[in-house]
């Protein structure tokens, strides 16, 4: 997949996770990689960039398991940005689905039509 495109989607995924709760870096990466195939080297820079742009802020909290953890918390600006990205994504992906489902969702039907045209 195109790297920039992928980055945009991951940005939205990171925002979607942090809109619900504060989390520390490792956990964010873990939660994302459970569903999509990404590694830390894609997610970490995005976390850092969004923090620099004041969409997230960080704070340190003691943990029971060892060293204190750096948590990321979404700011109001981050929330506004999240809404915006989400809207863009919905509009974009909605359009994509309309295009790819023009001929229905069944591959057999599409194949039948294609085959027929091919034979003509």
């Amino acid at each position: 997949m195109n790297a920039q495109f992928k980055r945009g989607i991951i940005e939205l995924c990171v925002l979607s996770i942090l809109v619900e709760k504060d989390l520390y870096g490792y956990r964010i990466i873990h939660e994302l990689s459970e569903f999509i195939d990404v590694s830390e080297n894609t997610i970490y820079p995005i976390l850092r960039r969004l923090t620099k742009e004041s969409y997230f802020e960080t704070y340190v909290q003691e943990s029971n398991e060892g060293a204190p953890r750096k948590y990321y918390r979404m700011t109001e600006e981050g929330f506004v940005y999240y809404l915006k990205l989400r809207e863009e994504w919905d509009a974009f992906i909605g359009g994509v689905y309309r295009i790819i489902n023009q001929g229905g969702k069944k591959n057999e039907d599409i194949f039948k039509r294609f085959k027929k045209r091919f034979e003509e």
Partner: peptide
Amino acid sequence: IIKDHEDMIEEAKSEGLSEEEILTKLG
């Protein structure tokens, strides 16, 4: 940035990931 990565390595270790697994995760 180095500090953040040290933290993440520690977290991964405490979850029982092997050195190799951690390196793949980090990229």
